[in-house]
C-alpha cells in the first residue's frame, strides 16, 4: 500500500490543525530530543543539490530518533550523472528505506517523487519552489517567542521577489490573521501574484521601500532576508539599495519588547554583527528549532505518534 499521503511536499497541503499538531510535537522534542522511537527504521537523505545546513539538521533529527541514515549529499556521486531518471533513483532507494528526505535542484521534483514513490517523501527543498521544513521552523520560532501565532505583525525585509521562504510564510500564516509589512527595494518587491494571494485570503499587508527604526517600531517579528547582487538587472540600482536593507543594532531602539529577529540563514551582511548580542536576535536559536521541527515531520511521515 502506498503511504504517499504522508509525504510532505508543500505546506499548502496541510490543514491548520495539522500544522498546530506538528508544532505541538516539535515542542515535545524540544523538551526531550533523544527518543529511540524510530529504532529499526532507515531514513534516506537524497541531496541532489548540496545543502549542508538542511541535510545535517534532518540527519541529526533522524539519528536522535534512533533511525539509521543512508544517502548522498551531492548528485555528482550518483547515477543521475549517468543519466538515471529521478524515478529510477526513487524506486531503487525505496527498496532500502522507510522514508526519503529529498533536496533537488528542479522545481516540482518533490511532488513527482511523492506520486511515484511507495514510501513517503519529505521535501527538503525543490529549486526555487518549496522548502516546507524551513517554513515550519519559522512558524515554530514565532509561536515560541510570541506565545501565539494569531494576530502577529510580521515585517519581511529584503528580497521579497525571489525569496521562497517569505512566499511560503504567506501561505502558512493564512490561518492566523497576520498583518504583514513588506519592506523591499522596488526591484525586489513582493510579486503581484502573492499580493493577490493575500487579498484572496484576507491577509492584511502594507508595503514600504524605506527601512528604518520608525518603520519597524510596530513589529513583533522582523524577518530578514538577503539582497543578492545577482538578482538585479540594473547594477546601479543594486549599488543604490545594497546598504539600505541592513539591520543595525541602533535601529532596534524603541522596538517592541517582544520583537524577535529571524533570518533563514546563511547571513552575509544584512544583519550587522552588533545585532547578535541583542536579546532580540533569535536567528541562531531559530536554526536550532529546525531540529525539533524536523523530528516532528519525520514522525508524521512515518505515522509514529509522539507522546
Amino acid at each position: 500500500m502506498s503511504l504517499t499521503n504522508n509525504s510532505l511536499v508543500t505546506l499548502e497541503d496541510l490543514s491548520k490543525e495539522k500544522i498546530l499538531q506538528l508544532l505541538e510535537n516539535a515542542a515535545k522534542f524540544e523538551a526531550c530530543p533523544n527518543r529511540k522511537i524510530l529504532d529499526g527504521k532507515i531514513v534516506a537523505t537524497l541531496f541532489f543539490e548540496p545543502s549542508t545546513r538542511t541535510r545535517l539538521s534532518f540527519e541529526t533529527a533522524a539519528n536522535r530518533l534512533g533511525a539509521r541514515v543512508i544517502g548522498f549529499s551531492d548528485a555528482a556521486t550518483t547515477s543521475s550523472t549517468k543519466g538515471e531518471t529521478l524515478k529510477d533513483t526513487i524506486m531503487m532507494v525505496s527498496n532500502y528505506s522507510d522514508l526519503i528526505i529529498m533536496r533537488h535542484y528542479l522545481e516540482g521534483a518533490a511532488r513527482y517523487a511523492s506520486e511515484i514513490s511507495p514510501i513517503p517523501i519529505i521535501n527538503a527543498g525543490d529549486g526555487a519552489n518549496q522548502h516546507p521544513s524551513q517554513t515550519m521552523l519559522d512558524l515554530y520560532s514565532m509561536q515560541k517567542t510570541q506565545g501565539k501565532l494569531d494576530n502577529l505583525d510580521i515585517y519581511l525585509v529584503g528580497d521579497l521577489k525571489y525569496g521562497r521562504t517569505v512566499h511560503s510564510m504567506l501561505t502558512a500564516m493564512r490561518f492566523f490573521n497576520p498583518t504583514f509589512h513588506f519592506i523591499a527595494p522596488k526591484e525586489l518587491a513582493m510579486p503581484d501574484v502573492y499580493k493577490q494571494y493575500c487579498r484572496d485570503n484576507g491577509i492584511k499587508f502594507i508595503e514600504h521601500t524605506e527601512f528604518n527604526k520608525d518603520i519597524i517600531a510596530g513589529a513583533d517579528i522582523l524577518y530578514m532576508t538577503r539582497v543578492q547582487r545577482e538578482r538585479f538587472s540594473n547594477l546601479d540600482e543594486y549599488e543604490r539599495v545594497k546598504d539600505a536593507y541592513i539591520l543595525h543594532n541602533d535601529m532596534l531602539e524603541g522596538s517592541k519588547p517582544n520583537l524577535r529577529i529571524l533570518h533563514p540563514l546563511p547571513r552575509v551582511n544584512e544583519i550587522s554583527q552588533d545585532v547578535d548580542e541583542n536579546p532580540k536576535a533569535y536567528y541562531f536559536q531559530q536554526a536550532k528549532n529546525g531540529l525539533y521541527v524536523r523530528q516532528a515531520l519525520i514522525c508524521n511521515a512515518l505515522n509514529i505518534n509522539v507522546d
Binding site: 531518471t85 529521478l86 533537488h104 528542479l106 522545481e107 516540482g108 511532488r111 513527482y112 529549486g127 519552489n129
Partner: peptide, 26 residues
Amino acid sequence: ITNHEPMATRFITVDKVAGTLRCAYC
C-alpha cells in the same frame, strides 16, 4: 521537473474564462 523526466505534465486550471493554468509540479 516535467521538462527533465519522461513523465506526463499536469496543469490545474486557475481561471477557466481567461485560460490560466498552473503547473501541478513547479
